[in-house]
Structures are given as C-alpha cells and as structure tokens.
C-alpha cells in the first residue's frame, strides 16, 4: 500500500509542472484513498506549494486541496501572496489595482467559503484577522465595487452574491463580528474620494509585497558578488 509520504512526494513532483498537474494528482489520490488520505497529504504541503496549487483557483473552480488546507497553511500562503504581483506598476487609477483585487478575492474566498462550513470559515477568518494585513485584505476585495459603501454601512441587510467579496464580508460579520467592526472602521478611515481608495490600495499592495519579500531574501543574497580577501 502506498504511504501518505509517497503520495505527498507524488503531489510535489506534479507541482513541478504547475497547479493543474498537482490537481490531477490530488484527484487520483482522492479516488484511490479517499478524503482522509487527501487531508494527510495536503497538510504536509508547504505554504509555497499551497500557493502554486491554488494559483489558478477561484470560487467557481476551487482546488480539491481547499477543504483540507489548515488555518496555519492559509496564513502562511497569505503572507506570500504579494509575490505574485508586479512591483513595478504604480497605482494611479482604479484600473491599476482591479486585477490584484480580483486575485485577492479569488485567493481568500475559496480558502474561507468553499466548504460552506461556518466553523471552518470562523477558524480561517480568525487566523486571517490575526495577521496585520488581514482586515485590510478583506476590505481591499470590496473597495471601489458598486455599492460597497452601502454594503458596509448596513451590514446584513443587503442581498449578496455568493462566492464574492459580498459573501466574504457577510460571513465575517456573522462569525467574526469584531473583525468586521475593524474592517468597517478601516473603511471609514479611507477618504471616500478616488485618491483615498488609491492610497489605501497602493499601501496595501506595497505592504503585501514587503511581507512576501522576506521569503526571497535567500535568493537575493545568493546572487551577490564575492570578492578576494
């Protein structure tokens, strides 16, 4: 019988060829050994591997791994999220951050909402809101969207579209009300003109880059020059 370690190695080997290859491998494992083995395998993956696995996922197409990613893995993967985005682009208009905004939404929503279990959503949100940029990340998925201010001003009374920033905020309100209050407070602090939103977006994206940068310090140092003594 194949051991979980071997299966993890098989997933890691598949990850070399990208997230969809690993997804196929996970599907094979699930078919052969069931969800309990899949859980064991996913829990062994590093945060960097998780990020490769979920890179192409969204709420319409979550990864098989999403249901088994632990809150700690989620937090570590979130910490590295900024590594995906170009650092060269300036945020001068809403259009400059909408792609990143969608990326954050596609990262957060499946992680927190895809199983539909409120207990899991609560644990994941608790972890995320414990991160210095957690509340900002949730707010970032909403800023500038149609009716987002109305949505924040009257929580729980608006119709929501499932699997979007709206459900993310709604679930946050339900299971982490103090976290929601923090997000609402952040929203109030943003100037309601475009400059305020742009400033918030630029600050958030920059901070996420900084978070991710620490994981690449080794590569940067390895490339430095050596001199004779």
């Amino acid at each position: 019988m194949t051991m979980p370690t071997d299966k993890t190695l098989a997933v890691r080997a598949a990850l070399e060829n990208g997230g969809s290859a690993a997804e196929t491998q996970l599907a094979l494992l699930a078919g052969e050994a069931g969800d309990s083995q899949l859980q064991i395998v996913v829990e062994k993956l590093t945060a960097a591997e998780i990020n490769v696995l979920v890179a192409d996922a969204d709420m319409s197409k979550p990864s098989m791994a999403h249901a088994f990613i632990t809150p700690d893995q989620f937090l570590e993967a979130f910490d590295r999220l900024g590594a995906r985005w170009s650092q060269s682009d300036e945020i001068k208009s809403t259009a400059d951050y909408t792609e990143i905004q969608s990326d954050v939404e596609d990262f957060l929503c499946p992680m927190i909402l895809s199983t539909g279990e409120s207990v899991r959503a609560k644990k994941m949100l608790e972890k995320l809101l414990g991160h210095p940029l957690g509340a900002e990340a949730i707010l970032f998925t909403a800023i500038g969207r149609k009716d987002y201010l109305e949505f924040l001003a009257a929580p729980g009374t608006q119709a929501i579209t499932r699997g979007t920033w709206q459900e993310l905020l709604q679930v946050t309100l339900e299971v982490q009300p103090s976290g929601y209050a923090e997000i609402a407070g952040l929203a109030r602090a943003i100037h309601e003109d475009e400059d305020g939103l742009l400033s918030f977006a630029a600050g958030f994206i920059h901070a996420m880059h900084e978070e991710a940068r620490k994981y690449h310090a080794a590569v940067e140092t390895a490339e430095e020059d050596f001199v004779d003594i």
Binding site: T46, A47, A48, E76, K214, Y215, H216, A217, A218
Partner: peptide, 13 residues
C-alpha cells in the same frame, strides 16, 4: 521555517 529555503532566508536577514 516551513521549508529550508525560508529558514535560510530568515538566517540571511
């Protein structure tokens, strides 16, 4: 660290 590369990065810092 969760991986050797990350541990090395932290050590470098």
């Amino acid at each position: 660290a969760s991986s050797k590369a990350e541990g090395v990065a932290a050590l470098n810092q």
